[in-house]
Amino acid sequence: MNAHTIQNDAPQRPYLRVQPDTGWLALNLKEIWRFRDLLSTLATRDVKLRYRQTALGVIWVILQPLLGAGILTFVFNTLLKAPTGGVPPFVFSFAGMLAFTLFSSILTKASTSLVQNAQMISKVFFPRLILPLSVTFSSFLDLAVGLVVMALLLLFYGIMPGFGLLLLPLWMFFITLLALGGGLFFGALMVSYRDVQYVVPVLMSLLTFASPIAYSVSLVISRLPMASRPFYFLFNPFASLLEAFRWSIIGRGDVQWGYVAFAALVSVAIFIVGALAFKSMEGKFADVI
């Protein structure tokens, strides 16, 4: 093409074309890769900031799940006498708590990540997906610390996890997908409707009780009429993943593999739905936030 044509159509391809939303729905992974340094910097910021100006600092990472598990153990096992299938109740609920904390902290932080960084969104360009993705890092770090505490507890009680332990990363993966899917959806919605920020904590506290953290799934199921049992798993896919997560750690528990497979599929589906919803609302973030 003649380089000296004085025309509107440029001869070389533009590096970037900014144009109206085309409804193109794919996730731009290449762009996220280009901004990977921002992703890691934000993740480190998140970790660095969390315990600054706290007296106990990093101890909170250990203390939070310990206290949470302690409360649930007291309520469900001491007061309500929920059976844990021969596993020490505290070990049982601590393992459940780790899975739940991973889930709820990713979902909660991902959903508030956009609104909390409103200034950045309205003043700088970067793939918006970076914000909810960056918060998962600190949740994993918390989980890692929690798993160390878990190992000490297992040693103390003399419990040996079986080969199921090898499947643990798999459950972590699906829990993350599920939580991120929800977080992306709620996060995008929160940009226009701040009401969502009040809904998410309520959902989380509902889920604290609706999930088998300190009781086993079989306990709930046994109380439900036969016909309605599948609904529990249908409406709370997280429950099966939590049960599988705990089974991997303490090597015991009655995991309903069919429902776990179903939950894994639901996680993938919810992640895709969440990501698509995020993508479709992304274009308006800077205008409405």
Partner: peptide, 30 residues
């Protein structure tokens, strides 16, 4: 590229850096 146009387009031939505000994302505790 912070917000999209309603109509029309912009072609940018090169890497863009923009500075719409001084200190965006600065964190006071850091």
């Amino acid at each position: 590229n912070i917000t999209r146009p309603t109509r029309g387009y912009v072609d940018l031939f090169g890497r863009v850096g923009s500075l719409l505000e001084v200190g965006t994302g600065f964190h006071l505790e850091l």
